[in-house]
């Protein structure tokens, strides 16, 4: 596959789901009928919503859902930083680790033991998964901005569809997003 740079007519958006719950991606669908406007407005690049799995061109805006809990997350986040002009941390997990970061108060070993060795419905003694086809887990869950530079933060768990829509539109038009309080207050 040659990486010829197409000059695209529309601005481009890439999204990724790191260690989150996919709720921030679902919230993007909560713009409802405006999905049709979104389709007119941007070209979707790398995203779990499509089958494009790697970058082959620069992208205008990258939305990051989730923090980093394993080496795959870190790699993907770095790929996003490399290819996206503007990177936005979307939601509590990307911004501060969110609920998955509740494990940061406990050692990783302790978490793995509880799930794979001491689960109450386990057969036999259990085993902690360790195959080479699994990513290495990180000692704790890291917010995105501790791994790469992030340009904007959009809070919420998840941010509402309206907040995502207004934020994205402003970025695509080239404005600094300035969302009204009600759109970005954390409930």
């Amino acid at each position: 596959m040659s990486a010829t740079l197409v000059k695209h007519a529309k601005p481009t958006l890439a999204t990724c789901a790191l260690t989150g719950c996919f709720g921030c991606h679902m919230s993007l669908l909560d713009i409802d009928e405006r999905i049709l406007e979104l389709v007119d407005l941007v070209d979707l690049d790398v995203s779990p919503f499509d089958d494009k799995k790697a970058f082959d061109r620069p992208v205008d805006v990258g939305f990051i859902e989730g923090g980093c809990s394993n080496e795959y997350n870190v790699r993907e986040l770095r790929e996003f930083r490399k290819h996206c002009r503007i990177l936005v941390s979307v939601g509590a997990c990307a911004i501060n680790g969110g609920v998955p970061a509740m494990r940061n108060t406990i050692s990783l070993r302790d978490c793995l033991d509880a799930v794979y060795l001491h689960g109450v419905s386990l057969q036999g003694d259990g085993v902690i998964p360790n195959d080479e086809d699994l990513p290495l887990l990180l000692d704790r869950v890291y917010p995105s901005h501790e791994v790469v530079k992030i340009d904007y933060f959009l809070p919420g768990c998840p941010p509402s569809g309206d907040a995502l829509w207004e934020g994205l539109k402003a970025l695509l038009i080239g404005n600094k997003p300035d969302l009204p309080y009600l759109l970005c207050k954390y409930e």
Partner: peptide, 30 residues
Amino acid sequence: HVVEFRGFERFIQGRMYWEVPVIVQRLCGI
């Protein structure tokens, strides 16, 4: 292969039981 691990079963320990329904739903946004 499922390649991600979160450890909810462990880190939910110590939380008050009435908090659990709102914490544990963060397992899945769909």
